[in-house]
Design a protein around this nucleic acid. Structure first.
Lengths: 195, 195
DNA sequence: GTCTATACAGAGATAGAC
DNA sequence: GTCTATCTCTGTATAGAC
């Protein structure tokens, strides 16, 4: 049998990551084989190893790319003046950005345990950096006197868990638009932290 | 080589479930082999099939048992009078019950996708039943005029996500006791839904 | 850069001895 | 009820042809 094609390195790399992300999110990292990924891309299993040293590195690449993108996007997000405006910006940004990347978000908190210690620490560090962004807003609001929080750490974890939870039930075209959901969650968050 | 021992059927069944839960929670369902479970119990892999028809049934049994226990425990929980007291009871119950069963909780929302459609539907139904308990409290509070919610469905999902999130960071012996965490979360929930 | 072919380990599950 | 032994399939990863 003849080989099917020639060189496609510029397109194959991104396609491998895209299919891997889709399959990992759907079935779980451990349940997906390199053969499955290769079949989805349309290459042989062996060919994947031209683009990644191993399966874990493929997962790490997906998680790292996602977290880097999240932090970069938040850095560029318009935030307004004052802790209250910044908190509203955070709430709306988190819901919107995560809903637009449901698979990557799902992976980032479900498949962390499949990373080795070094890779795990990198992703955890980025996550911590993101959480610190929110905590800084909450602390600033407390200093300004517009928020009243029993504990800024717990409030940070509570708000992020609540916002990320939207991904588990939201469906585009459902009862509520994303903008409406953003507004409702902002209302709940605003009340929960207000003085 | 001689066999190690005789009959242990009354003790082996529960031990298999206990070790499976521990291993599934730690490494993920797909990453754990029947041989690993058998080794942890101290029997041979083939012996597991005297207690479960297959690996998925073992997972389903764990999830089903957990959800049944959760619903039964909530049914027996003292709740007090009025929506506000009932909501506080729910918040504290959810945090306490879930923290005491971290492995089972983790499995119940991480490994659902490893169930076949019928088993999946059973667990989803139980989860839905539990969510409806909270939503009923929120609706009652709205009728009583003590809560002000833009949307009872979203508030339900937001509160459950926020409360369940405690399991991801709480460590016994850490900065805050479980009771303190309960109180702080109740404070945030109370403010978020209050009129 | 991709292919075929394959090495090697480990998976889930079953059969039959004891 | 548990064991050993084994079937069959699938896993990750590599070697070497083209």
């Amino acid at each position: 049998m003849a080989r099917k094609t020639g060189s496609h390195s510029e397109i194959t790399g991104p396609r491998i990551r895209a299919e891997a992300q889709r399959l990992f999110a759907r079935h779980g990292f451990a349940a997906v084989s390199m053969r499955q990924i290769a079949a989805a891309v349309g290459v042989q299993a062996g060919a994947l190893y031209l683009y990644t040293p191993d399966k874990e590195a493929l997962l790490f690449d997906l998680l790292k790319t996602h977290m880097d993108g999240l932090l970069a996007a938040w850095a560029e997000e318009p935030k307004g003046e004052g802790a209250r405006a910044r908190l509203e910006a955070f709430v709306r940004f988190h819901i919107r950005y995560n809903l637009e990347r449901a698979e990557a978000v799902f992976l980032s908190y479900m498949e962390l345990r499949n990373l080795g210690p070094e890779n795990f620490a990198v992703i955890e560090g980025l996550r911590k950096t993101y959480e610190t962004e929110l905590e800084a807003i909450l602390k600033a609001g407390q200093a300004e006197g517009v928020f009243d929080l029993p504990d800024s750490k717990l409030a940070t974890m509570a708000i992020i868990a609540m916002l990320t939870g939207v991904n588990t039930w939201f469906r585009a075209g459902g009862r509520l638009s994303r903008e409406t959901v953003e507004a409702i969650y902002w209302d709940m968050v605003r009340k929960a932290v207000s003085a």
